[in-house]
Structure formats: structure tokens, C-alpha cells
Computed example of a mutant assay.
Amino acid sequence: MNLQTAQNTIQAAGVFYSRSSDATGKGRMQVNDRNWIVVSQTPAPGTPFGEGEAVLSVVKLDERNSCG
């Protein structure tokens, strides 16, 4: 799922602040959220979380990733 869709899903669940992080370790900023794909998240799916606790690890859409 792209980063924008993931953020929208989190907001629809009532949590309005989530964070994202470059999964490659390069520290790049996610300026256009639709150009990034979520490859992992903390906390794990199904785990309750509050404001600012969700961290989405992302790579650019055209980069090799563990999600296929």
C-alpha cells in the first residue's frame, strides 16, 4: 500500500498523527506520500496504538523491497 493510503487508513481509524521512516536507512524525507510504499510498520498489525505511535517504514515505489 502506498504511504498516502496507509496514512488515510490510520486516520479513518481515529488516529491522526503517524510517522514514516525511510526503510533503506538513507534518511530520505517522504515529500510525495504517493511515491512511497509501506514495507513494514510498528506496532504490528492489529495492535492498538495512539497518536504518534504508528511508524510506517517505506521505500520509493520503484525500489526493490520485501513486499514483492
Rank of each mutant, 00 (worst) to 15 (best):
V15E: 13
T47H: 11
Q11N: 12
Q41K: 01
Q30N: 00
E53G: 04
A6V: 00
G50F: 09
Y17S: 06
S20G: 14
D62C: 06
T5Q: 15
Q30A: 07
S40I: 10
I10T: 13
E63D: 04
L3G: 02
N35Y: 14
L56K: 08
E63T: 02
T47K: 02
W36P: 14
N32C: 03
P45I: 02
V58C: 04
P43I: 11
N2R: 07
G52L: 09
P43S: 13
D62L: 09
P43Y: 15
P48I: 09
T47D: 04
R28S: 10
P48C: 06
E63P: 02
G25D: 14
N35I: 09
P48A: 01
A44I: 09
P43W: 13
A6P: 08
Y17T: 12
V39T: 06
M1A: 08
G27F: 06
Q7P: 15
S21H: 11
K26T: 05
G25A: 00
N2Y: 10
N2K: 05
A12M: 01
S21R: 11
A54H: 07
G14W: 12
T9C: 10
V59Q: 07
N32M: 15
G46H: 03
V31W: 15
W36N: 09
C67T: 02
K26Y: 08
T5M: 10
V15A: 04
I37K: 14
C67H: 04
V39M: 12
R64Y: 04
V59N: 06
D22V: 05
F16R: 09
T9G: 10
Y17W: 07
D22Q: 07
T47C: 04
G50P: 11
P48M: 09
